[in-house]
């Protein structure tokens, strides 16, 4: 296992695979939260449903935590190696065909880490913007559950919180737009027959994911999603 990190190619592959798990997570996470548009009852039932998964939820969490650690560790390892590989910088250096997003992966990665800490502190640990974090809701079957609907919408009614999420998601979009096509290349798939398709899918998928995420705080701001008072 340790041997993997002696090879730059294997470290990159570890990075690609763990990143792929996170791309999967971001799609699943977004799909779940789209239930906000289905109303307070559906969304709160979904939140409770996740909690009811018990050990399965923890299995998922462990997979995501390991992927996160692997992705960040590989990233830091490669970054420090890459910095060492050019001890004297050029006076003039121009990008030739590289995109700004491909050169900013470490920066947008750090931004995403900051976002994750903030996001967990906000919605999972309930330590920031805590005014809506501890309300309860009674489902139609009589069960009293955590009112996650009010927590999400109430928080996004604050324009600064809303703006922070939109900006973080734009950073995520920059990271993702390079990441998806990059995974394909790193795992060894590159052929003139399907390269343009990979590019289109990568751009399309990252645009859909980012617009999807932005649509939630934006809908709150535009009044499409609003507090319903609860039970």
């Amino acid at each position: 296992m340790i041997g993997i990190f002696r090879s730059t190619i294997l470290t990159k592959i570890a990075m690609a695979l763990s990143g792929l798990i996170w791309i999967g997570f971001s799609i699943a996470h977004l799909s779940g939260h789209f239930l906000l548009f289905a109303g307070q009852e559906a969304y709160n039932a979904y939140g409770q449903g996740l909690k009811d998964l018990g050990p399965l939820l923890w299995l998922g969490r462990i997979i995501f935590i390991i992927s996160f650690l692997l992705h960040s560790f590989s990233g830091i390892l490669l970054l420090s190696r890459n910095k060492e590989a050019r001890p004297v910088q050029y006076k003039a250096k121009k990008p030739i065909v590289s995109t700004p997003q491909s050169r900013m992966m470490a920066l947008t990665g750090i931004l995403l880490f900051t976002f994750m800490v903030y996001h967990l502190a906000h919605f999972t640990w309930g330590v920031v913007h805590a005014e809506y974090s501890h309300l309860t809701y009674t489902l139609s079957d009589g069960r009293e559950v955590h009112d996650v609907y009010t927590m999400v919408i109430g928080s996004y009614q604050n324009v600064f919180v809303c703006l922070a999420y939109v900006l973080f998601m734009l950073g995520f979009g920059i990271h993702l737009s390079h990441a998806i096509a990059s995974v394909v290349q790193t795992l060894g798939f590159n052929h003139p027959m399907y390269n343009s398709l990979v590019k289109k899918v990568a751009n399309g998928l990252s645009t859909i994911i980012i617009l999807g995420y932005i649509s939630i705080p934006a809908s709150v701001m535009l009044g499409v999603l609003k507090l319903t008072g609860g039970h």
């Binding site: 730059t8 890459n82 990008p95």
Partner: peptide, 18 residues
């Protein structure tokens, strides 16, 4: 290649351009 101290590929593709 790794032992010589070259960096890793981050798929920016400036190599192909140059």
């Amino acid at each position: 290649m790794d032992q010589e101290g070259f960096g890793s590929c981050t798929n920016t593709y400036d190599c192909e351009g140059a």
